[in-house]
Design a protein around this nucleic acid. Structure first.
Lengths: 192, 192
DNA sequence: TATCGACTAGTTAGCAATGACTAGTTGAGA
DNA sequence: TCTCAACTAGTCATTGCTAACTAGTCGATA
């Protein structure tokens, strides 16, 4: 059946299996070793779930089972034709069509009037500090290196671009709240 | 016994109940009328789930039940003391501590080498167009208005800041790929 | 050589979120 | 006045994700 692959982790599985057949645990190891877990949420158990779903939907197929010692049996999966197709299709859409994302901070902003303005200034200060550190890390990580081609750092460039934008936004926002020009409504909710 | 309120929708419920006791359906109506559904994912059925959880965890309490005609009974809930506490606590954390978000586009970037470079240029072009439209909308929405205080548009300002940053990033990225300086690895994956 | 932590490999139970469903009410237009 | 669409109000079944568990292996250290 299968209207597609919702979970990005599923796409990783398909993408990796394009290189060669593998068993789930190996997929997980590879994912970690290529540092994809920073961009794609990875939980050990989720991987097995996702593999099961991909199999159910006919995107991957068990090839052989092997076993080392008394450890559990490993099932090696291979990509099917429709698996390859769905990988390309989903990836194209992910790139071409911006998805609506619900960010935690966005939700917080939508409810920000619940907190008294002076406290918001303090909290935004804390966030600012964390963001600054994050940005420094990302700048370090994305600095041109000889051992890694730039295309493999592109996710971090993106994170960096967003983090910098957020930093600027928070700085502006904090200044606004700090200036005291906060509007009657918000002020009125917090009698001091 | 309740380690907090994971779902942002739960925070909306708590925040709204701070104003006055309400029944779930009314909460949903209010959420829509205040245009929070653009920042906080809202599904009718999820609301009832969340309300049930908040009740289970002692953050809200049923006050009375009423009924209009033959329509189902409505249960009116009120905020408890620990509900108020948890609302403030979670909101503070949401503001002060940047959460790691897993964005769809970020995942796509992590797997981008699966697609051939020329196609990526095209797809990024499509995304760029969508982003431009989105930015125009947000600019319109956040333009200073007499009938709404600026603090109630702050979520949109945030979205705008991020959208603009993404637009710039995509533009730069597309130019890089288009220039053909794409690295051996990526090129090698797509024999032409 | 006993033991402790890290690694290998996969399963399971429980909860949270969502699409689909039920069912009555109201108002506008034919 | 009939009916159709939109609204009111809530429930339920399915699916998916994750924390926690099982259980064996390997290497270092005391």
């Amino acid at each position: 059946m299968a209207a597609g692959v919702r979970n990005p982790l599923g796409l990783v599985v398909l993408a990796f299996l394009q290189e060669r057949p593998m068993h789930p645990y190996e997929l997980g190891r590879l994912l970690k070793s290529r540092n994809k877990q920073k961009s794609i949420k990875y939980r050990h158990a989720s991987l097995y779930m996702v593999v099961k779903q991909l199999h159910r939907d006919g995107y991957i197929e068990p090839q052989e089972t092997s076993r080392a010692g008394q450890l559990p049996e490993r099932t090696v999966y291979a990509l099917t034709l429709s698996g390859r197709e769905v990988l390309m299709r989903e990836l194209r859409e992910l790139v071409a069509v911006p998805a609506k994302e619900y960010l935690r901070f966005e939700a917080a902003l939508a409810l920000i009037v619940v907190l008294p303005p002076p406290e918001v200034v303090t909290l935004l200060g804390e966030r600012l500090q964390a963001l600054t550190e994050r940005i420094a890390e990302l700048r370090e990580k994305t600095r041109a290196r000889d051992d890694v081609e730039w295309i493999h750092l592109i996710e971090y460039e993106y994170q960096l671009a967003l983090a910098e934008a957020e930093e600027k936004f928070v700085r502006r926002f904090r200044a606004s709240v700090d200036s005291g020009d906060v509007g009657e409504l918000w002020q009125g909710l917090h009698p001091s």
